[in-house]
Design a protein around this nucleic acid. Structure first.
Lengths: 91, 91
DNA sequence: CCGTATCCGTGGCGATACTG
DNA sequence: CAGTATCGCCACGGATACGG
């Protein structure tokens, strides 16, 4: 639980989840949607989200390469919770 | 919002809120309820919670001195949200 | 286009000792 | 009892440059 919060609390993670909660996104799209995030940080966040089973990573062997990220059902649950927090924080 | 999460995400803050969500607590009680927390860290967390209007600090001029901490209504709202997250994290 | 490699700064956190 | 003072660690995140 503490780990969950620490995880979610990291600066960029919730923003990534927000983006994906709206719909699947490509790496470059995420980067553009979150000005200021470094490629390293974005990659890190996506990987740990994937490890936790909140995000899926799909590679399309096109040319040029395409990689798409999307939330799993469990990831969307978390997205809903974050919406609640966002509402609370704004109030 | 990001700040809110970063704040809540810090290691001890949610645990403090949990304790106070159950009811008012004295400094020493909190310390005993959370083995491993250092007095400095506990004091820090309580102060920042107070600044954010989530916790009230009441001093009873008894002998020996007594200080009691309790959640504000807004603090309890956050407590509810944390319960939701705890449930989600456990599932 | 999608990342990984490297290097470095910052601050949260802990341990311990001490005061009103 | 309820904190403050001091010191140090080290993991996390940022910037930049480079590879598949």
């Amino acid at each position: 639980m503490t780990q969950t919060l620490a995880f979610v609390g990291s600066k960029w993670t919730p923003l990534v989840i927000f983006q994906l909660h709206l719909g699947a996104r490509r790496y470059g799209e995420l980067q553009r949607a979150m000005p200021g995030i470094s490629p390293k940080t974005l990659a890190e966040r996506l990987q740990s989200l994937e490890e936790r089973g909140l995000v899926t990573r799909t590679v399309y062997p096109d040319k040029p390469p395409r990689v798409e990220y999307a939330l799993t059902p469990r990831g969307h649950e978390l997205g809903d919770i974050l919406d609640t927090i966002a509402t609370w924080a704004t109030a």
